[in-house]
Design a binder for these strands. Structure first.
Lengths: 236, 236
DNA sequence: GAGTGGTCTAGACCACCCC
DNA sequence: GGGTGGTCTAGACCACTCG
């Protein structure tokens, strides 16, 4: 564990545990240097992690202050960013999966372009429904190059593809480019998600990248609008 | 202008102008040190800006590589992040505004909590419709504490509140916490946005903060789903 | 003027990749 | 083994806030 990560985690815990009230001032960077026995630039980096998460604000000439945001935000953005697949973001709930389609096909030109592969290559073509505590929450359309992510089996799909990638294949996920939009469900999706009446879906389309820069996934997840939101923090 | 900002901008331009092909390797950090006459940590910081924007990937032991994402992404996330109000994010289009409501009221308990003020305080209560090239694109419900953002006039609302804050009041915007969701428009909104038939709206609710940590705005903008998306890049 | 965080340096050592 | 980026140091100076 790096020093700055450990320090960031420490401060985070102090805030989450209520040791720092919302609006109150954090210990000075100089003080933290002494407390942790590190240089100031390392403390700065640790605190900058919290700034990135939106938990604190730095004011040059004054100090660093706790922002005091809603608890939901802290939980959702938290130490981990809005990352991981579906399973990881809903800890504490019972997650189950229904695999509706699992084939290997050629990608469309659009998908091939996004995944930086040829239409001659092969991709997994997966449709899954995700349930939270037994209620359908979203339907996920996933395409992944078999070259990049080999060994996907039915069993992997029932759990987390992300776990398979990081734990079994030992690959690192680096980033995701997401586009969020609103749409109406198709008739099939209304069945999948047990939607009656008029309810839109929140669509999250993403291209995800490994740490070596290769795109490894193009997916669209379409969520019931009454049970899902997408959160983001942006810093100027 | 700071050195690392200038260097980041330089590299960004090299990528945007196509001097670096997608997938190609950037100049080494050591080379950039020589080129710009700065220390390596400064070059690193510059390149990290581009990583944050999702334009490049660093591979320890190998180098830094251009990710090769869609042009839309680069434009939208770009050098500026997905920031600024509506006017700034649609340069090149003709933007106009229709003010439907402009009053001063007490905030609801929920809004007061988010803005860290009392329900006894006053907030502007604003409803505006935004048009892109003459077509209604979204309706925006804004509440701002009059104490924090004084001097809002009809004329300001016709242009950009953000410009007023940064240029007239000389305040710095620091961050925004956003929650994106999908919903159906109300009957009134269908009129405002000239929606016929069944079309959902993409809602972006946000609390925005000044650089001194004070929340200064709670707003909900509800966009026609057929003309709007929300983009985000997340880095592990 | 005293004190805060912001930027930057020159140099060290480490973890990792590839040959 | 040679070269990459990652982390960290000790110290300097600057920009800003506040009393």
């Amino acid at each position: 564990m790096n020093k700055y990560e450990q320090i960031a985690r420490d401060i985070y815990n102090d805030i989450a545990s209520g040791k720092y009230e919302p609006g109150s001032q954090l210990a000075l960077e100089k003080e933290m240097c002494a407390q942790y026995g590190v240089s100031r630039i390392t403390v700065k980096r640790a605190v900058d992690e919290l700034v990135k998460q939106g938990l604190v604000v730095k004011r040059r000439g004054s100090g660093t202050f706790v922002k005091g945001v809603q608890e939901e935000d802290v939980e959702n953005v938290g130490m981990c960013g809005q990352f991981g697949g579906f399973s990881n973001t809903h800890q504490g709930h019972q997650v189950s999966t229904d695999v509706k389609k699992f084939e290997i096909v050629h990608p469309s030109p659009e998908v091939a372009e996004k995944l930086k592969i040829s239409t001659e290559d092969f991709v997994y073509d997966i449709i899954r429904i995700r349930y939270l505590d037994g209620r359908p929450e979203n339907v996920e359309y996933t395409q992944m190059p078999i070259e990049v992510i080999p060994g996907i089996k039915q069993e992997v799909l029932m759990n987390s593809i992300y776990n398979h990638i990081e734990n079994t294949l030992k690959l690192q996920i680096q980033s995701a480019h997401r586009t969020v939009s609103a749409d109406m469900p198709t008739e099939e999706e209304k069945e999948f998600l047990r939607i009656e009446g008029v309810l839109p879906v929140l669509q999250v389309a993403q291209v995800a990248f490994l740490s070596d820069g290769r795109p490894f996934e193009y997916s669209k997840s379409r969520h019931r609008a009454d049970t899902s939101v997408f959160r983001a923090v942006s810093i100027h």
